[in-house]
Design a protein around this nucleic acid. Structure first.
Length: 274
DNA sequence: AGTCAAACCTGGGCGC
DNA sequence: TGCGCCCAGGTTTGAC
């Protein structure tokens, strides 16, 4: 489910609900979801801490806690983190419940059980390799087209594979990669280092605009994604090519096709992208 | 180094 | 109704 715009939306929706709340307890029903500390130590380690704020890095959600501790959550494909009243019946695949001092719960559910939760001192966050190795934030003010051009130089892999590489840029996944490449008018199989200066500029602008659009529409719900209040996103109605095999290209009307790139389904228009 | 497939899981959808 | 297959927003690992 969740790429940068979805994780950003979860962050924003949870922010208004849980900042300032104290964790009164935690129940772990599926220990393997807890990667650190050992699951049996996790409830004791988080109980009593106040939630100071929420941040996002790439697709990672960071919950800042008192005592310089941070809980790091990655939702992977089907994870959900929702602020829920305690009388709401437990949804299937609910693996961890946090009890908050306002009587509500923060519930983590994950059908496919790929999600991860860490709790550690802020200073040790770099022990999480996926977090440590993340590339730049594509929406950061400091990220420029010139920088993107430098980063692409010498990259012989397909441009879509590069966009999906979290050590290259943080937060782009399969849906937004296809949308970005369509908006930029670039085929996903193009070698990354063979884009013209103009194409790099278009790619940069598409990365920024498509991710921002996704956030503005509260993310994309293709299947499982919901935000921190359990609400679906809206951006699925605005997708141009992703999951639209056979439908007319919004630009030229030719059918959208699906191919495999880097092992992932990729949707594109042969007419509008080259 | 680069590329590919498999692995981690559950469940939906399709053809037969 | 059921079986078998393919598919799914992600990331890591291990084999060539």
């Amino acid at each position: 489910m969740p790429e940068l715009p979805e994780v950003e939306t979860v962050k924003r929706t949870l922010q208004e609900k849980i900042v300032g709340k104290v964790v009164k307890g935690a129940r772990v029903f599926l220990p393997k979801m807890i990667k650190h500390p050992p699951a049996e130590e996790f409830p004791g380690a988080i109980t009593g801490r106040e939630i100071l704020g929420l941040d996002r890095r790439g697709k990672y959600l960071l919950v800042r806690l008192t005592g310089q501790f941070v809980m790091v959550v990655h939702l992977r494909m089907t994870g959900r983190l929702t602020y829920t009243a305690p009388d709401v019946p437990l949804a299937k695949h609910t693996h961890v419940i946090f009890e908050l001092d306002d009587g509500h719960e923060l519930r983590f559910q994950d059908q496919r059980q790929f999600g991860t939760i860490y709790l550690m001192p802020e200073k040790e966050l770099n022990r999480i390799s996926g977090l440590r190795q993340l590339g730049p934030e594509p929406l950061a003010a400091e990220f420029t087209a010139g920088q993107l051009g430098d980063m692409l130089a010498g990259r012989k892999r397909k441009v879509k594979e590069v966009l999906l590489d979290q050590t290259f840029l943080a937060g782009i996944g399969n849906i937004y990669a296809d949308e970005i490449l369509f908006v930029a008018g670039i085929l996903p199989e193009r070698p990354a280092d063979r884009l013209s200066e103009q194409e790099v500029q278009r790619l940069y602008e598409a990365i920024r605009s498509v991710l921002q659009e996704g956030i503005n529409h509260r993310g994309t719900t293709v299947r499982d994604y919901v935000d921190g209040s359990g609400q679906q996103g809206d951006y699925q109605h605005r997708l141009r090519v992703y999951s639209r095999e056979g439908e007319p290209c919004p630009c030229c009307g030719q059918p959208v096709i699906r191919i495999k790139v880097g092992g992932r389904s990729s949707y594109l228009c042969r007419c509008c992208q080259d």
